[in-house]
Design a protein around this nucleic acid. Sequence first.
DNA 1: CTGAAAGCGCTTACAG
DNA 2: CTGAAAGCGCTTACAG
Lengths: 341, 341
Amino acid sequence: MKKVTINSVALHAGVSKKTVSRVLNNEPNVSPETREKVLKVFKELDYTPNPIARGLARNRSFIIGCLYDNPSKSYITRVQSGALEACHKYGYNLLIHPCELRGGELIANIEQLLQTSRLDGLVLTPPFSDSQELVNFLKKKAIPYARVASALKDDDSISVRSNDEQGAFEITEHLIALGHQDIAFIKGHPDHSATELRFKGYKRALAEHQIAFQPRLVAEGNFSYHSGADSAKTILDLQPRPTAVFASNDYMAAAVLKLATQRQLRVPDELSIAGFDNAPIARHIWPGLTTIAQPVEEMTRMAVEQLIMAISEPQEHVFQTVLEAKLICRESTAARANAAN
Amino acid sequence: MKKVTINSVALHAGVSKKTVSRVLNNEPNVSPETREKVLKVFKELDYTPNPIARGLARNRSFIIGCLYDNPSKSYITRVQSGALEACHKYGYNLLIHPCELRGGELIANIEQLLQTSRLDGLVLTPPFSDSQELVNFLKKKAIPYARVASALKDDDSISVRSNDEQGAFEITEHLIALGHQDIAFIKGHPDHSATELRFKGYKRALAEHQIAFQPRLVAEGNFSYHSGADSAKTILDLQPRPTAVFASNDYMAAAVLKLATQRQLRVPDELSIAGFDNAPIARHIWPGLTTIAQPVEEMTRMAVEQLIMAISEPQEHVFQTVLEAKLICRESTAARANAAN
DNA sequence: CTGAAAGCGCTTACAG
DNA sequence: CTGAAAGCGCTTACAG
């Protein structure tokens, strides 16, 4: 079976290959009849343009790279799914590139990626979307990029995030409404801007309800389950013990639940636990975790769509989008036991 | 900054571009001095060959596609990680393509993928690695592929899997050794060959220990957490209730644990639970799940490496590899309570 | 509205 | 051991 190229189509349609190319790219200046004729031959010959040839001629790869370094598999899968949706819509493909922020190799690593893969653009997820160094490098190299879930000050680039501060505020307020005053907090990874925002939301809720912020109730995590387990130990050993824990993500919250259960602390009766992200684990354990749902797929889809637009028409203006996060109440939070009464 | 191409290198080195090409591809018939000279210019100019141009000339994309349709995010991430490792080693990139086995669109979907992406090969994960229809299609189209975790009868293709039957045998024997006789079993998705193999291992262990197989103890799952929850209900409602449950994967086992906990059944004292896969959730819940660890990354890495070899040298012989699965004991299984004594 | 020529950055097939 | 020519399948820049 012979390969079908632009030449075979031109031959069959009795036009030049430039005309075929015009039809292919929806360019103007083709008579309706000619266009029809060429379109018909496309079908007859089952023709699909070769993206590699097109890429060489246009100096484009039609590939978007997705950078991530995140302990949460479910987060990564959601990111990929949103990115793929946008890519497929515009005939792009997605190349995944897990790598490490720390270690000083990042820029060299990305430089090599760009040289060998000739990506058309990059979608950055946390913590890369928060890296000023990386952003500066991409600007210098004039590589289009879009940032997901980042609060980095970088107004002239595409950015889609959700309202982390507000989400943290709402879930903390939910705990306060249940009568909790001693609410422990587990921070996320210091390289992620979400970490500081969620902390801010927590503190704002306390302040608005005239509850004193207690530094002793704050533990340092890094979003991994393991760090949650460490923080859980610190928090559950506190005297007096807090009546609620708000962990900056669900994995760390699950670690608190595991330790509480091991110690035969009843959740939520003796301890309320809240997470963040609405990861699958939040509903796979008992009691299910009260948490904040973020539209991760949607965020990534929008970011990649805008990125592809920016690649095609660089003069377009840049968007900064903030989506809503939503409180999901499950069984892990309940009214504070009236120990004091 | 001017683009560095094979021509600039040839110019600088004072040779023809064909000679540069020879050095690039490690071809023979270049004098050591010439080779040295060219290699030096590579460094000076910081030259990297353009994979797109090379792809056009050689009719290659240097991209491997990875097909999956699996409810387990952690499985997918492990597959990707193994595949990426192999790809990067040989200068390939990985294109991920989640899609659905059912619905009749599969072949059309893959056909379009192949036409638009010009993949050099495909790595198939379950349930695609078990699809005779897909394998036949790829054979007809002469698209190189490698199968992961599949027991499909297809001896002339690359295949890497782990010993599911043996793993299931061992974990069932572990439960038997703890004194259990009434061991419920939750099956996986019928489209995966692992489902039947794990079931076989379970039955073989019963038989070897002279325990009668009881069909009433078998529930139909599909590897999803949700199906595990349904099966859990069926099993925990049985009269008399089994003293142990072996679920074909950890998500379904986690669902059994959740329901048992909700019903205040003590695990493992009143009910032992075992899973399969050693997914992260197995250690994120309390009690941690006894399970079987499979080398998923390793399997995929090997499959993709062999695939890339086959692409480069199609006349090479084909390997069928079976790796070992390993029993991991955690807290969810224990000696059967001596109710009868 | 249409097309002939040149080029994208490589490799293949051939000649010397 | 080395190179000039042609080609991979498209697009760009120009001419008519």
